[in-house]
Simulated scan of single mutants.
Amino acid sequence: MPALLAAAVTLATFAFMEFWAWFMHKYVQHGPLWVLHRSHHVRHPHPVERNDLFFVIYGALSAALFITGGSGSRWWFWVGVGIAVYGAVYFFVHDVLIHGRLRFWKKSQNAYLRALNMAHKMHHKTTGRDGSAEFGLLWVSPKYLRLARAQSQRRAPAAGE
Score class of each variant (00 low, 15 high):
3 A>S: 01
9 V>L: 12
10 T>Q: 01
11 L>S: 10
12 A>D: 00
18 E>W: 14
18 E>A: 11
20 W>S: 12
21 A>S: 07
23 F>W: 15
24 M>A: 08
26 K>I: 03
29 Q>G: 11
32 P>L: 15
33 L>T: 14
34 W>Y: 14
35 V>L: 14
37 H>C: 00
37 H>P: 03
43 R>I: 14
43 R>D: 15
53 L>W: 13
53 L>D: 10
55 F>C: 07
56 V>R: 02
57 I>H: 07
60 A>R: 00
61 L>N: 14
62 S>H: 02
63 A>R: 05
64 A>G: 06
65 L>R: 03
66 F>P: 09
66 F>N: 15
68 T>P: 06
69 G>H: 09
71 S>I: 10
74 R>N: 11
75 W>P: 11
75 W>E: 03
76 W>S: 02
78 W>I: 15
80 G>K: 04
80 G>H: 08
87 G>S: 09
88 A>E: 02
88 A>T: 13
90 Y>V: 08
92 F>I: 00
92 F>S: 01
93 V>D: 03
94 H>W: 14
94 H>S: 01
100 G>W: 06
100 G>D: 12
101 R>F: 07
103 R>K: 14
103 R>P: 09
104 F>H: 10
107 K>I: 12
111 A>H: 13
112 Y>R: 07
115 A>W: 13
115 A>I: 06
121 K>F: 15
127 T>I: 01
128 G>T: 13
130 D>G: 07
135 F>R: 09
135 F>M: 04
135 F>G: 12
141 S>M: 03
143 K>E: 12
144 Y>I: 02
144 Y>H: 12
149 R>L: 15
151 Q>I: 13
156 A>R: 13
160 G>I: 05
